[in-house]
C-alpha cells in the first residue's frame, strides 16, 4: 500500500520526529516499499491462529516488595543537560 505525504507527516508526528519538506518524498518512497513488503502477510490465512507475543512460553515472575534502590540522583543527573534544584527542566508543560 502506498503511503501519502499526509500519512508520513501523521506518523512522524506520532513518533515526535521532525521531518522537513524536502525529506518527505524520500520517506514516502521508502516507507511505501516497506509497507509493500509487510503487506505480503495480508495474503496469509491466519484464522484461528493464537497470536504469539513472545518466544518463550513463560509467565511473569514476581519480585518481593522490597526497597532495593538507593538515591543516586547526582549520578543520574550528570547525564542530563538541564537540571535545576534536582528537577529535570523542560519547556513549559501546559495542562
Amino acid at each position: 500500500m502506498a503511503l501519502y505525504p499526509t500519512d508520513v507527516r501523521q506518523i512522524a508526528h506520532l513518533a515526535r520526529l521532525e521531518v522537513s519538506d524536502d525529506e518527505i518524498a524520500d520517506y514516502v518512497d521508502k516507507l511505501s516499499q516497506i509497507i509493500d513488503l509487510v503487506d505480503q502477510l495480508q495474503q496469509v490465512d491466519t484464522g484461528g491462529v493464537v497470536p504469539m507475543a513472545h518466544p518463550l512460553d513463560m509467565s511473569q515472575r514476581l519480585r518481593a516488595d522490597e526497597v532495593s534502590e538507593e538515591n543516586q540522583r547526582e549520578l543520574f543527573q550528570r547525564n542530563a543537560s538541564a537540571v535545576t534544584d534536582g528537577l529535570y527542566r523542560v519547556p513549559k508543560v501546559i495542562d
Partner: peptide
Amino acid sequence: FDGESGIDL
C-alpha cells in the same frame, strides 16, 4: 522556572 517546567519523577 522562568517559563520552564521542572520534572520530578
